[in-house]
Structure formats: structure tokens, C-alpha cells
Design a protein around this nucleic acid. Structure first.
Lengths: 164, 164
DNA sequence: ACGCGTTCCTTGACGCGTCACCGAGCCCGG
DNA sequence: CCGGGCTCGGTGACGCGTCAAGGAACGCGT
């Protein structure tokens, strides 16, 4: 007996399922290709595309739409792994600089291409690219309309990247 | 300058964004309506729809497509909260029964309607129901095609619930 | 009856993420 | 110059999830 669930519940579950599957695949590939997790890659990538490979925690949080304590914890873990370093900030005595270590820069380089490759391996086999584009648009619409009004900046940025 | 990312990367990010937004909203509503988290609800709901409100950990894992150690940890936490109880299993001395406590049964009841309401509140404002249905189908296709071949059973179950 | 592989479940360590909270430096108004 | 509020960042506790490992019962083949 197929349960009489509303379509929305099915959609909700499908959303989770798809995200979980795709994410797991990407994380595995990223791990074996560059020895880095997805959250690690996000910070690495954010710092790598900065001219001097450094940023304040607050900036990182803004770039990634992360809470500051999340940023702090992640930086601490990556510091232990030797991917990042923390330095005092002369201009603002309560702040710090987060800087890519040499190892971190190397990892960022390796991870960047692995990241794209992994995602394309997961999502590429999907129908036409037109389908993928409209799918992305529908998902962004969900993100925009959802109630907790966090990270609208992210949505806007991604949407603008779609209409060329 | 819109970055020259491939569509797949945008799609990947959109997937995460949408899932995060919707999930956060649902969790909040579930929490304040029934005082229960989403993972807690999943176990509660699975047990509640069993005639005697009990199951072996392995069965729970199968129902939810969870690893057994995940199930074990989650049951332990919920046991501490008084939502569940563990009993020895006479038929198989190495196993246990996981049983809904009275409080758990109450919570399950309250949560079930809150869950559906919360999801509809998040996803309802979306275009037509036809759109939502095709969206769900596309997401399930992603889940089916993705490389780590976990939880294909879940995909199949949800897909069958779509074509009536 | 014995033994050995399998299944059942749990545990501990660890990564990730959130919340509540805190100390310290910054800055602006008086 | 001082005081109060703000921002900066970090910390601890906790929930969630995975992996690797392990103990104990089962059950089947001999």
C-alpha cells in the first residue's frame, strides 16, 4: 500500500536522499584525490582565491555563509592538521589572520580540480544540461522562499551566475 | 564577473542550499511543536507505525536506511531523554528490543502532524503541485544514478509512491 | 559435540555544526 | 577622558554521523 503522503513529504525526502548521495560521492572522491574533506575544501578554496591567501575569520564566515563559531572550530581543526595558520592582527588587536600554510596551498590546488571533476562525475550523467539548469533554478527558488532567511546572499550570487 | 563555473557546480551548491534552508525550517517547527529533532522523529515515527511499538535495532536501520552504529547511538541518546526503552530479547540473546516509552508515544503522535505541517509550510508556497512532482522525480533520478549505491531501496520506495 | 564464520549490537574516537556564553578590544557620545 | 555598547573571536557542551574495532550469541557443517 503506497502511503497517502502528500507530494511535499515525498519531495522533502527526495531532496535529502539526492543531497546525501551526491555529497557522499563527492566527499569520497575529494578525499582520495586530495586528502581533504568538503568543509576543509571550502575554506581552502576561499583563501586560495585571495591574493595573499589570508583573511579574517569574519570574512571567511561571510564568504561561506558560515557562523563564526563554525569557522573558528573548522580553522582550529585545520590548524592542527597543518593546513592553516593563525597570526595576530596588528590593525585590530582582538582579531587574527587565518593564512594558508604551504601544505594548505598545495592541497587547495589539488582539491580545486578534483572538486569540479567529482561533481561532474556525479551530476554529469544527468539528462541534458538544460535540465540541470532548470533544476538548479528551481532549487534556488526553494532556497529563496524558505522561511529561515539565512544566506539569501548565497542564493542571489548563484542565481546571477545562472543568467550569465 | 559571474564565475565560469560549470552548471554542475552551481547545481551542486543549489542542492545544498535548498536542503539546508528547508531542513532548518522543518527542524525548528518540529522542535517547537513537538520538542523533537528530525532524527528523533524518524525513529519515533518508524516505531509508532508498528503494531506493538517495538523493533530490533537492525530492523530500524533497514527501515530508515541507517547504519547500525548510527541507530545504536541515536537510540542511546533517546533512551537518556526517556523517549525509548531497551529490553533484552528472549528469542535472540545477543539482540535487544527498542520500545517506545509512553512519553515517546506521546511525542510521536504530536510530531507526526507537525512534521507534515512543517514540510508543507516550507514547500507549499512553491508553484504548482505538478512542478513539485516533477522536481521530486528529478531528484530521485539523481539519487538513483549517483555512484555510492547506498539506499537504493529508499529511492525505489519513494518513486513507487509517486506513480500512484 | 565442536568449531568457525556470520550476525547482532555496542563502544570509542573523531569530524562536523549549533548554541550559549565569555573576555577583550574598539568606538562613539558625553 | 571615560563609560557603555558593539564587534571580534574563541570555548565548552552537546547532538549528529562515520569508521574501526570488539564481544557475544547463533547456527551450520562435519
Amino acid at each position: 500500500m503506497g502511503d497517502t503522503r502528500s507530494i511535499d513529504v515525498t519531495l522533502f525526502r527526495a531532496l535529502h536522499l539526492a543531497t546525501r548521495q551526491v555529497t557522499t560521492g563527492v566527499e569520497q572522491q575529494l578525499q582520495e584525490a586530495a586528502g581533504v574533506s568538503l568543509p576543509e575544501f571550502e575554506i581552502l578554496s576561499a583563501l586560495a582565491q585571495l591574493p595573499d591567501h589570508r583573511a579574517r575569520p569574519r570574512e571567511i564566515g561571510d564568504m561561506l555563509a558560515w557562523e563564526k563559531s563554525r569557522t573558528s572550530h573548522q580553522v582550529t581543526r585545520m590548524q592542527k592538521r597543518g593546513l592553516l595558520e593563525r597570526f595576530e592582527c596588528d590593525a585590530d588587536m582582538r582579531g587574527t589572520w587565518v593564512v594558508l600554510s604551504p601544505a594548505g596551498a598545495r592541497a587547495a590546488l589539488a582539491a580545486e580540480s578534483a572538486y569540479v571533476a567529482a561533481i561532474e562525475a556525479q551530476l554529469g550523467p544527468l539528462a541534458s544540461s538544460a535540465d540541470r539548469e532548470s533544476l538548479a533554478q528551481q532549487l534556488l527558488a526553494i532556497g529563496r522562499d524558505a522561511s529561515p532567511a539565512t544566506c539569501q546572499g548565497e542564493v542571489a550570487a548563484l542565481e546571477s551566475s545562472l543568467d550569465r
